[in-house]
Computed example of a mutant assay.
Amino acid sequence: MQEKHYRSIVKAISWRTVGTIDTMVVSFFVTGNLVMAISIGSVEVLTKMALYYFHERAWNKTNFGRLKVVENDYQI
């Protein structure tokens, strides 16, 4: 089964939302600076969303870890 491109895009957006919030929280604890934390999160959200999309599409092209559905070639 293949996935449509928009599915990968929506998954990338939802995952990056979670990931970016995490990055901003960690950045704030490391730097102690809210503006810096938001800046770091803003930059990484764009780069990681693009990377995730291409990573997801590459995995969609391989059958690694997928089970092939075999249909019966006869009827009873």
Rank of each mutant, 00 (worst) to 15 (best):
V10C: 09
M36E: 07
K48T: 11
T47L: 07
L46F: 14
V30D: 06
E71M: 06
V25A: 15
M1A: 08
A37I: 01
K4Y: 10
D22N: 09
S8I: 03
R7C: 06
D22M: 13
E44C: 08
G41R: 01
R57L: 10
K4I: 07
K68V: 12
N72Y: 06
E44L: 14
T20C: 07
I13M: 10
V70T: 12
E44P: 00
Y74N: 08
T62E: 12
M1N: 08
V30G: 01
M1C: 04
Y53Q: 01
R57T: 08
G41L: 01
V43L: 11
I40Y: 06
L51A: 09
E3Q: 15
T23Q: 03
F29A: 10
K48N: 10
V45S: 13
V30S: 06
K61Y: 04
E44Q: 13
Y6R: 11
K68C: 07
F28L: 13
A12R: 04
V30C: 05
K4C: 05
T47D: 02
F64I: 14
W15G: 04
T23S: 11
L34C: 01
I38Q: 00
K48L: 09
I40E: 05
V25K: 06
M1G: 11
I21S: 07
K11W: 09
N60Y: 08
V43C: 04
H5C: 02
Y74I: 08
I13P: 01
H5E: 04
I38V: 11
R57A: 07
S14L: 15
E71I: 05
R66C: 11
R16V: 11
M24I: 15
E71A: 09
I76E: 13
Q75P: 02
L51S: 10
D22Y: 10
N33R: 04
T62P: 02
Q75G: 11
L34G: 00
F64K: 14
L34W: 04
T23F: 02
T31Y: 02
T47P: 00
S39W: 00
L67N: 15
M1I: 05
D73R: 09
I21R: 00
V69K: 15
T47W: 03
F29N: 07
T20S: 08
L51Y: 06
W59D: 14
W59F: 13
E44N: 15
T20L: 02
Q75S: 12
R16A: 05
N33S: 08
Y53H: 02
S42N: 04
Y53F: 15
G41V: 00
E56W: 03
L51R: 07
T23G: 01
V45G: 03
D73Q: 09
V69D: 12
M24F: 02
G41K: 00
K68R: 12
E3F: 15
N33A: 06
G65H: 05
A50M: 08
V43Q: 05
S42R: 02
N63P: 02
S39P: 00
N33E: 07
K61C: 08
S27A: 15
S39N: 05
V18T: 11
V70M: 14
I38W: 01
Q75D: 13
T20M: 06
I38G: 00
N60T: 07
L51N: 09
N33Y: 02
I21T: 11
T20E: 01
L46P: 01
Y6I: 13
A58L: 12
I76M: 09
L67W: 14
V18A: 15
W15F: 10
R66H: 13
L67K: 15
I13L: 15
V70H: 13
A58I: 08
K4P: 06
L51H: 09
S42H: 01
